[in-house]
Design a protein around this nucleic acid. Structure first.
Lengths: 187, 187
DNA sequence: CGCCAGACGCAATGATTTTGCTTTAAGGTG
DNA sequence: CACCTTAAAGCAAAATCATTGCGTCTGGCG
């Protein structure tokens, strides 16, 4: 489980915010690979032992930060039809996740995550977005696949290729995945 | 790139074998999380600096060992028909990969792998196995999907769920994925 | 056989991680 | 509102780990 359930508003929350901010700042200043716990601690105005005690090690801290950054900040756009909604979402998803930064976040999220809860959280984000799109389509009266199917047929192939075969990924691939799944469910 | 291209038979090869063996032994004795470079070095009869110089850090070493262990050691079995060959392979794949040990290896392989070549290697192993099955089926005269399709529709969903949603995975899931893809390609 | 290049061992150095103890601050209680 | 309890943070010492320069050895090649 993530270390998110700290008392909100207290000193713990300030420390967490400060440490997270320090990670993000330093990652963009000196590069993700140059991060160390003492470095982050110094920037955050905190002692290293605080970080070690709260997060265990650098990987778990990075995993925490990564999950936070992988949380979608906007609801999927409304293009009037399931096909265009899902296509647009899949293209954006691929685009964000396949970028160097996105891939680093995914790896970090998977990495310092002994019990898999951070990874589960990432998956839940995607599932929520898809559910939102599908529910909206259903309210329009469109026939829709279910969330699990979209995850298996769109999200999973995308993530698999990002992680295991980073070459030759483009928006056309995402479009093709969506077209194939809708072709099955459609008319 | 993996450190496999050492001169075979020389001292380098002995060191590599010894270090790999030490990692496997210690992983099962003290647990994967308790591994440290000095510990491995001691068991392997090697100085830590040797490991640091050859592998860089513990993660890259673990990644190396993981890829080696993820290499299939046997060709996919012949059950006389594409459907049964692919189903059996998918069930075994899921079974091996979803086990606690398998998941740890996958994560290690993804982890210490700055350029993605180890992960690519893992994917290539699966692709080879699938290609073998499909080619055999084609020689029997069966109509087959192509390798990329099987990866997208069987391997990717399996791996995605292993990494991101480890719950509720069983052989039936693998069978369903295979049934769905063959239903599409078949009569 | 002797040379060369690469790989290893050794040891010193510097950085990180861990740990015991103390101090602080948040939240609850009388 | 003052007090008490407890979780979390600070501090500092000790242990462990990572890095690096240099000398030695192994194995391959002319």
């Amino acid at each position: 489980m993530s270390r998110q359930m700290v008392r909100p508003g207290g000193r713990s929350a300030r420390v967490q915010a400060s440490v997270h901010a320090a990670v993000r700042e330093l990652a963009s200043e000196v590069g993700r690979d140059a991060l160390t716990v003492p470095l982050v601690a110094q920037r955050a105005g905190v002692t290293p032992s605080t970080i070690y005690r709260r997060w265990g090690d650098l990987q778990e801290l990075l995993s925490d930060v990564a999950v936070e950054r992988l949380r979608p900040d906007t609801a999927p756009g409304d293009h009037g039809a399931l096909a265009s909604d899902l296509t647009a979402w899949a293209e954006q998803f691929l685009d964000e996740m396949a970028s160097p930064g996105g891939r680093a976040y995914i790896r970090d999220a998977l990495l310092g995550d002994p019990d898999g809860s951070n990874a589960g959280q990432c998956s839940a984000y995607a599932a929520d977005q898809i559910d939102f799109i599908l529910t909206r389509a259903a309210e329009r009266g469109e026939k829709t696949p279910d969330v699990e199917t979209v995850i298996d047929r769109v999200v999973a192939p995308t993530m698999y290729r990002i992680l295991f075969r980073p070459d030759g990924l483009d928006a056309a691939y995402a479009r093709r995945l969506v077209a194939e799944i809708l072709g099955l469910t459609g008319p």
